[in-house]
Structures are given as structure tokens and as C-alpha cells.
């Protein structure tokens, strides 16, 4: 029987949806699922993973895992993967997994592909699809000449199964010793409570058409109404209206929400590259010739400053 190893991400013991996606995919492929959960709540996350088909779960609830540390995570992942003996390794893309897994791949002399949007498991073979050139095209990822294959998947790509009953075997994993050349001295949490752009189901983005930084407030109000995250074009990041962490595009974040609302954004090729796989796109722009309308599902020609507050009011009515 084929075997798949999944690194589980959770917040306080509740599995993140990206992890549920991977569990569902491996379970549907009848692969025996091994997994790893770390940090406070890991045991609860392991129990939950059992209801998605995980059979063997390595767990370490140590407080050292409360902050990300590259050396500690790399060594811990390597130790769990070695004990599991799995050759197919999956995780969902995040700041932590993108930092750690490439190094794990180098340690094991393994094939590595990140940011994939489709995953096919078939016995011991795995293929994936990966957007290239910021989504201007995509290609199938094939692994050759290597024993261990590691795939990081973009969140929100795979349907999640309904949980069923299932009790996994939980194994305690020891904290490996590390050289501690990297120490995490502090984590400065942002004051935003909204989901990260790359995970958000709805994104509302603003560009230079919003005229000034204060008008981003109109987007925040809309975001709070519909549970969205606020994004931006590079022009307004460069103008200093909003931080770079909010930039969508080829040199910013790649987003793939179900709904993307672009207000006062012209739709330059570099911006489109970061959002064109959004399912539904709404464009609000005063210029009927703006390229963003070519990528939009719905378009309104008009003044974003007038339209945004009224649209927020409509959303409020709709969701009341």
C-alpha cells in the first residue's frame, strides 16, 4: 500500500483547511496517511486528522514549537519523515513550510515543488500542476530520479471530505537537538485579524484610483462586512499608502480567492498575474477601456469613491 506523509498545520488544535485538503486527497487515493503535528494543541489536531483518515500521527506539544524556527522545524520534519519511512511528503504552502521544506528536500536529496494547484496521487507516483511565470501558464510537475518527493500545495485547491470516525495511532516525537545558530527573538504580530491574502476567500483591492491612503478605509469597511482581506496594487505600495505585505501581483502576493474586487486598479500585466486565477472578479474603474475589465466577471464604470460605500451598504443589507 502506498504511504503519504502530511505536515499538519493547526491553530490551537483546530486543523487549518489546507491540511484537511491534503488529508482528503491522500485518503481518496487510498494511501496510508502518516502525519506530524507540532505545538500546543497538536494532540487535538491529531485526533481531528484521524477523522480525515490519518493512521499514524507523530506529535510533539512542546512550547519550543510555538514560534517558527528554521533549524528546529527542519530537524523535526526530517526526524518524523525518517521514522515514518514515507516517500511522498505533502504540506500546504505557508511562511513556515516554504522556509523549511526546501531544506528538508536538500537533506534527503529529494525532489521538491512548491506552490502547486493540483495534486494527483496514484500508488507511489505523484504528479502536480504548478502555475509558472505568475500564472501566465502552468505545467505538470513530474518527479524523476529521486526516491523522496515533496509537494507544497497552495491552499483552497482541493475539496475537503466530510469527517468520519477514525482513531489514529499517536506517537510521541522527541525534540531533536539543534545547533541554535538561528534564534527567534520576537514575533511582532500585525494588528490585523483578517485572514492572510494568500488564504483569503474574498479579497478587496485598491489602486491609485482611490486617490489617497485615507480612502483605503472604504475597503476596510467593505472587508469587515463580507469577511474579506484588503489587497493593493504596487502603485499604492510604492506611494507608501499601504505596506508591501498587501501587494497583489507578480512581485507581491499571488491570490486565488473565490471573489476578487478591484477598485481603481488599471489591471497592468504584473497585477493580473497575481490575481487572474480568482474565480469571480469584480472591476470598478472610471475608465471603460481599463485592461482590468478584460479579466473581470462583472464590471462597473464609475467613481470608486462613490461606489464602494454604497456597495458596502448593499452587502450589509444582503447579509443582514
Amino acid at each position: 500500500m502506498s504511504q503519504t506523509f502530511i505536515f499538519l498545520e493547526h491553530s490551537n488544535g483546530k486543523l487549518k483547511s489546507g491540511s484537511k485538503e491534503l488529508l482528503s486527497c491522500a485518503n481518496n487515493a487510498n494511501s496510508e496517511i502518516h502525519a506530524l503535528a507540532l505545538g500546543s494543541g497538536a494532540r487535538n489536531a491529531a485526533e481531528e486528522a484521524g477523522t480525515f483518515g490519518a493512521k499514524v500521527i507523530f506529535v510533539n506539544e512542546g512550547s519550543e514549537y510555538s514560534k517558527y524556527n528554521s533549524e528546529l522545524f527542519v530537524e523535526t520534519l526530517a526526524s518524523a519523515i525518517e521514522q515514518s519511512g514515507s516517500k511522498i511528503i505533502l504540506a500546504s504552502s505557508s511562511s513556515a513550510t516554504r522556509d523549511a521544506f526546501p531544506r528538508v528536500a536538500a537533506k534527503f536529496n529529494a525532489g521538491f515543488a512548491s506552490d502547486c494547484t493540483e495534486l494527483n496521487l496514484n500508488g507511489d507516483t505523484v504528479t502536480a500542476r504548478k502555475p509558472l511565470y505568475s500564472g501566465k501558464c502552468s505545467a505538470q510537475v513530474n518527479f524523476k530520479n529521486c526516491d523522496i518527493k515533496i509537494v507544497l500545495m497552495r491552499p483552497n485547491q482541493i475539496p475537503i471530505n466530510d469527517p468520519s470516525s477514525g482513531t489514529p495511532e499517536v506517537k510521541d516525537l522527541q525534540t531533536p537537538s539543534i545547533e541554535a545558530k538561528v534564534t527567534t527573538t520576537e514575533v511582532k504580530a500585525s494588528d490585523s485579524t483578517r485572514p492572510d491574502l494568500t488564504e483569503a476567500g474574498i479579497v478587496v483591492s485598491g489602486g491609485r484610483g482611490l486617490q489617497n491612503a485615507d480612502n483605503f478605509q472604504l475597503l476596510s469597511e467593505m472587508a469587515d462586512t463580507i469577511g474579506a482581506t484588503v489587497g493593493a496594487s504596487r502603485a499604492v505600495v510604492d506611494a507608501g499608502w499601504v505596506p508591501h505585505s498587501m501587494q497583489v501581483g507578480q512581485t507581491g502576493k499571488t491570490v486565488a480567492p473565490t471573489l476578487y474586487i478591484a477598485a481603481g486598479i488599471s489591471g497592468a500585466i504584473q497585477h493580473l498575474a497575481g490575481m487572474s486565477s480568482s474565480r469571480v472578479v469584480v472591476a470598478i474603474n472610471k475608465d471603460p477601456e481599463a485592461p482590468i475589465f478584460k479579466k473581470a466577471t462583472y464590471g462597473i464604470v464609475g467613481d470608486a469613491l462613490e461606489i464602494l460605500p454604497k456597495l458596502t451598504e448593499e452587502f450589509k443589507k444582503l447579509l443582514a
Binding site: A113, K130, G135, A139, Q140, N142, F143, F293, T297, G299
Partner: peptide
């Protein structure tokens, strides 16, 4: 170890409403 095949362009979007 990693090889790309079957390149595809993104699907065309239906025209805007």
C-alpha cells in the same frame, strides 16, 4: 528530479458583464 511537461495557458475568461 523535477521536470515540467504538459504546459497550458490559463483558460480564457468569459467576457465581462
Amino acid at each position: 528530479y523535477v521536470e515540467f511537461t504538459d504546459f497550458q495557458l490559463p483558460p480564457e475568461r468569459p467576457s465581462v458583464k
